[in-house]
């Protein structure tokens, strides 16, 4: 590994100052499950690695925010998300997505902010957060900025964060109608591989269905069924299929990926999309019962 300096700031202001001073020469270190691999491969060659794990404002945890929102600390790990009773109850798709990231060892380190900032098309927490309308709270030299997650992802590896900005938290705004959600994923081998297809579905009592999917294009996508068909128990299978086909129409899986061929991914997206929908609808009924 190429040498670099190490900084472990204890305030958010220090982190921002380091990012301003070093520009692209600074890299943030949270869980390190991607960064350390890239450092070893020489894909990134920073002057300074800035470890953000001891900054109180970025500490792990799920807390109540303003007006009924839920705030997830930037360095909350996948293990913590998957086990948290509030996440399991109110954001089931997120708990399920976090529970299948890598292995136990990876989940014990990998953080939510890291998963989002890497902006991998296969990010396991992204579809769940998209269907729950998550907002990225970014902070930088000009202060805080709130970015809807759907606008945060630009393309693989690229986010809407400015040069000296970082993610301080993820906020789940309160919904007028509670969203029941579920996550589905396909991978080649459990415990190691990235997702070949990842999809989450969220349904609210008003019948609005949100579907988000990843690993089938340059960034995760969010689509909303405004017709009410997917949540309508009287809708025919043909009608539902037509809506799902429209929702998945923007999937553009790579033809050259080593992980899965495009035909397979598209076929699995339809299967998993349906499973996620059924699971979310079931959970909505459970909650209503």
């Amino acid at each position: 590994m190429q040498p670099f300096a190490y900084a472990r700031p204890e305030t958010l202001a220090e982190v921002v100052a380091l990012l301003e001073r070093h520009g692209p020469g600074a890299r943030l270190l949270a869980g390190g499950t991607d960064l350390v691999i890239n450092l070893r491969d020489g894909k990134v060659r920073p002057e300074v690695v800035v470890d953000v794990k001891r900054v109180p404002e970025l500490a792990p945890g799920i807390t109540a925010g303003e007006a009924g929102s839920l705030v997830i600390g930037a360095t909350t790990t996948m293990t913590q998300l998957a086990a948290h009773p509030v996440i399991r109850r109110d954001l089931a798709a997120l708990a399920e997505g976090a529970a299948v990231v890598g292995s136990v060892q990876i989940r014990n380190r990998a953080t939510l902010a890291g998963n989002l900032c890497n902006a991998s098309p296969a990010a396991d927490t992204a579809p769940a957060l998209l269907v729950h309308g998550a907002i990225v709270v970014a902070t930088g030299p000009a202060g805080d900025r709130r970015i809807p997650l759907d606008e945060f992802f630009v393309r693989s590896g690229v986010t809407a964060l400015g040069p000296a900005e970082l993610v301080r938290a993820i906020e789940i705004p309160p919904q007028a109608s509670r969203i029941a959600s579920a996550h589905q994923r396909r991978t080649r081998r459990r415990g190691h591989d990235l997702a070949s297809v990842t999809v989450a579905c969220g349904v609210d009592a008003a019948g609005l269905v949100r579907v988000a999917y990843g690993s089938v294009g340059p960034r995760p996508l969010l689509r909303v069924d405004t017709t009410g068909t997917l949540a309508d128990p009287r809708a025919t299978d043909e009608a539902r299929t037509a809506v799902l086909e429209a929702i998945f129409a923007d999937a553009t899986p790579s033809a050259t990926s080593m992980r899965a061929g495009p035909e397979y991914r598209l076929a699995m997206l339809r299967v998993l999309g349906r499973r996620a929908l059924e699971a979310a609808l079931g959970r909505l009924d459970e909650a209503a019962a």
């Binding site: 136990v104 990876i106 014990n108």
Partner: peptide
């Protein structure tokens, strides 16, 4: 050395981790 095989697993503050993906300075 990419966090896939688990041969370097250690317990860090009660949690199993791949030691190949942790900088030693992080263990301070």
């Amino acid at each position: 050395l990419v966090g896939e095989c688990g041969a370097c697993t250690v317990i860090l503050d009660g949690r199993s981790v791949d030691a190949c993906l942790v900088l030693a300075v992080e263990a301070e």
